[in-house]
Design a protein around this nucleic acid. Sequence first.
DNA 1: GCAAAAGTGTTCTCTGTACACCCATGC
DNA 2: GCATGGGTGTACAGAGAACACTTTTGC
Lengths: 238, 238
Amino acid sequence: MTLQELIDTKNFINQLSVDCAIFGFHDNSLKILLLKYHELNLWAIPGGFIFEDEHLDDAAHRILYERTHLEDVYLQQFYAFGGIDRTEKNNPHRQLLANKGIEIDKDHWINKRFVTVGYYALIDYTLSHTFPDAFNETCAWFDVHDLPEMAFDHKEIIEKGLEHLRKTLDYDIVGSNLLPEKFTMKDLQNLYEAILGEKFRRNNFQRKMLSLNILDRHEKLFSGSANKAPYLYSFKKK
Amino acid sequence: MTLQELIDTKNFINQLSVDCAIFGFHDNSLKILLLKYHELNLWAIPGGFIFEDEHLDDAAHRILYERTHLEDVYLQQFYAFGGIDRTEKNNPHRQLLANKGIEIDKDHWINKRFVTVGYYALIDYTLSHTFPDAFNETCAWFDVHDLPEMAFDHKEIIEKGLEHLRKTLDYDIVGSNLLPEKFTMKDLQNLYEAILGEKFRRNNFQRKMLSLNILDRHEKLFSGSANKAPYLYSFKKK
DNA sequence: GCAAAAGTGTTCTCTGTACACCCATGC
DNA sequence: GCATGGGTGTACAGAGAACACTTTTGC
């Protein structure tokens, strides 16, 4: 959908949007997938609008698919952001419209304040393809603690999503969505240390995870390094 | 505001609303304050619409005030409900409009599907005044496990709010908002047993609460009964 | 054999639970 | 004194933290 087609669309709910914080795990740190408006030096999490007769969750999945081509993703709603100034600063729509010389009415819905519902997605970093979408943006992964200049209040949305992820931490859901099919205990530990921002004892962490009874142990991983080969694990299928 | 004034209002965000589940504690059980549309046999939690330029949290406070005259209330947002059929069943607006013979356009915003943001309020049961508001409804407290016929999907909203309350349970916030200024340890225990739906050992509960260091102990409460008088407690001021 | 990292064992502490006992109160 | 319910003590079990020890791997 082009910007012109977007602003001509009539059957969106006015002043309501969905934004998705996409978390991935790589290089022992928690990453987030951001889209860049390439004419602008602004990054954003993928977001969009809800059709008048569309389930909010369906809208979140659709928007995620349209803007990243990710399907069958774990998505969790976490908070509705309703500040009156939240779309005032770093508003890429206004800047793009101005750049393209498109004149739109001051009362057009895209110029109004939006309430946005935040969702987070958990995806396997190794399976994601980052690619430019119809808005001619580029995509890239960023460390959650080292974000670039963000559109709107997207930095606060990411923070709140991460906080929700931490508070409602489910070892099974988080691990099975953020790690590849098979992984070592060290991978798992690195993941939880990155999310929770604290270090654990190697041996105690291992015992804790095994006691949860959510892992299957597989063959050992021979990496060629001069030490004992770790077992590979996967999450048990339901 | 009358129903006619409501439907004539132009500066609400279309298809977005706020609903507040108001929790109170009485007779050792968790109660919820419901409003009744007196021409209909339908009960609802107080809800309303958001002005185009109003903070979502401010809207929640305003709606709560307009419909119950409660002020300075602890309010917590917990979830946005976005199902496409959520306003189809038990829709009091349509029934009231039909009863009053008010004809409105099928495309009028009040006939559309609404996404609603759920908040819960925690109030001291003894301080609340239940009274009919401008909609000529009546109000009453109900046990959360024994609800009457509810408008829209309000039963599910209450369930989800209660679930959120349980999961994010903060002894200080919940206790200091749901209990009167001074209370006995037994009152406190009854409150948490009602919320969590489980029984605790009297002595262990007491030790746990005292170890949290959030209570001040005051004089004893002489009730006239033939047993040791319990201490009164209050939550420490910050 | 040796270094490096994985895997397992053991002890200690803390929290939560279950049971027991004592204390205050009004009759 | 006695029944009733409040307050405190203590012992046991399980989880988590800190430490040590053994095993596996490639050089």
